[in-house]
């Protein structure tokens, strides 16, 4: 299935409660080398045909306008997934 992948993370200066809870659990389990975790989102857009550069540009717009909220999140990456 041809895909475009959108990766979104909560803004650096915002508290990420999920990440904090997971980091605490990891530390409790003995993984003291891990200092912190942050949890974001990976959204897959599935296409019938291999997506074009035009599809990618449109996906970037969607990532900015709808899939993320720039007040609280950053779009980290939008890319066509390598089929191989």
């Amino acid at each position: 299935m041809p895909k475009i992948i959108v990766e979104i993370m909560p803004k650096q200066d915002l508290l990420d409660p999920q990440g904090k809870a997971v980091a605490n659990a990891l530390k409790r389990a003995g993984n003291s080398e891990i200092d912190a975790t942050r949890i974001g989102k990976r959204i897959e857009l599935h296409y019938k045909e291999q997506p074009t550069e035009e599809d990618l540009e449109k996906a970037k717009e969607l990532a900015k306008d709808f899939l993320s909220n720039s007040v609280i999140e950053d779009v980290v990456d939008v890319y066509i997934e390598d089929q191989n």
Partner: peptide, 17 residues
């Protein structure tokens, strides 16, 4: 209203979760 950009800013999870 905030998501529709009719009002500015954002609303996030309560401080104490």
């Amino acid at each position: 209203l905030v998501e529709a950009h009719l009002l500015p800013g954002g609303l996030i999870r309560n401080e104490k979760q």
